[in-house]
Structures are given as structure tokens and as C-alpha cells.
């Protein structure tokens, strides 16, 4: 049995249900990393996670400057919640984060999705959430393969070394 435990992953299904910059990136980095390891990869966006594949907004994602205790000012100073509530602060902080990520060769989501599908990864949107937000297929990145139900999602989760990851 010990041999079995050492077997590498064959397939991962990654679910992104939140639309914050860092939540979408967590899913994108994990999906791209899996594709680069030769792991079959399915990426599923639902609820606010749909922000990450919406043509109009995917490259302008924000991080929360209110209610985010992990947020620090440059120089490791605390980030007062009230400051985060001021106009343009969230936009400014988010654009700073995006530029820092670009320096680390983390592409904007539109390009990240292209990289994932270039390696054979597949990207899906959740039917229920798409209907709830009254969206259409053409609102999404062309890299989105299909709008599917949760049942279809589980049907993809076949095979012994398959993992489902909810970010």
C-alpha cells in the first residue's frame, strides 16, 4: 500500500468562490501550478469568484481594505480600518498589489487563464451563480470553456488520485 500513497496527483478540481484579488489569484496560481506539473486541472468559478473570469472586471480586481486584519502599510505599520474606508484607498492599494505581483511574473487574470488553458487546463463557470447574476457566456473570458452545473462538476472528479480544492 505504501507505493500507492506515493503516487502523484492525477487530477485536481479547484473551486474559486470569492472575488477578492487574493482569492482569485490563489485559485489561478494553484491551477497553473498543477498544469505545469502535468496534473489534469479543472478550475471552477462560482458566486463572487465569477469576478475572476468576467471580461470587464477580471483584470481590475480589488483586495479588501476594510475588515482585512492581514493588511499592513508599507513599513509593516498597522492599517487602520477607517483609512481603508476612505474613497480610492481600496483602489490604490489594489493597484499597488497588482503591480507588485507583476514584478514577480504573476500575470493579470486574463493572461493567467490563457496560460492555464494553453497547458490543457479547463475553466468553467457555475450555472447557478451565472443565472443569479444574470450573466451570459459572452460576458466571460474566451478561456471559459462552459457554464456547468455542480453535478457536471462532480462527474469530472473521477479517477483515483483526484482532489477537489476549495480556496
Amino acid at each position: 500500500m505504501s507505493n500507492l500513497e506515493q503516487k502523484p496527483l492525477d487530477k485536481v478540481l479547484i473551486i474559486c468562490a470569492k472575488g477578492n484579488l487574493e482569492d482569485v489569484y490563489a485559485a489561478l496560481v494553484m491551477a497553473n501550478g498543477a498544469v505545469m506539473e502535468g496534473i489534469e486541472t479543472k478550475l471552477f468559478f462560482t458566486f463572487f469568484g465569477l469576478e475572476g473570469i468576467l471580461k470587464k472586471r477580471m483584470d481590475k480586481l480589488h483586495t479588501a481594505t476594510v475588515g482585512n486584519p492581514g493588511m499592513r502599510m508599507p513599513g509593516d505599520l498597522p492599517f487602520p480600518t477607517l483609512l481603508g474606508a476612505l474613497p480610492f484607498v481600496e483602489a490604490g492599494v489594489s493597484s499597488m498589489m497588482r503591480s507588485e505581483m507583476d514584478k514577480l511574473d504573476m500575470p493579470p487574470p486574463s493572461e493567467f487563464l490563457e496560460m492555464i488553458t494553453a497547458g490543457g487546463g479547463e475553466v468553467f463557470a457555475c450555472k447557478l451563480a451565472v443565472e443569479m447574476f444574470k450573466l451570459k457566456k459572452e460576458d466571460f473570458s474566451p478561456e471559459v470553456k462552459d457554464i456547468i452545473t455542480i453535478g457536471q462538476f462532480y462527474e469530472m472528479a473521477t479517477g483515483q488520485n483526484t482532489q477537489i480544492i476549495f480556496t
Binding site: 505545469m36 506539473e37 502535468g38 490563457e114 494553453a118 497547458g119 490543457g120
Partner: peptide, 16 residues
């Protein structure tokens, strides 16, 4: 080569 071609050239591990 672009990313897609890299995957074709080195299947299953373009960078590794």
C-alpha cells in the same frame, strides 16, 4: 515559443 508551444515541446512539465 509561446506558452502553448512550450507545453507541446515539453509535455507535462514545460519548465521542469
Amino acid at each position: 515559443a509561446d506558452v502553448k508551444e512550450l507545453y507541446q515541446l515539453f509535455p507535462g512539465g514545460p519548465l521542469k
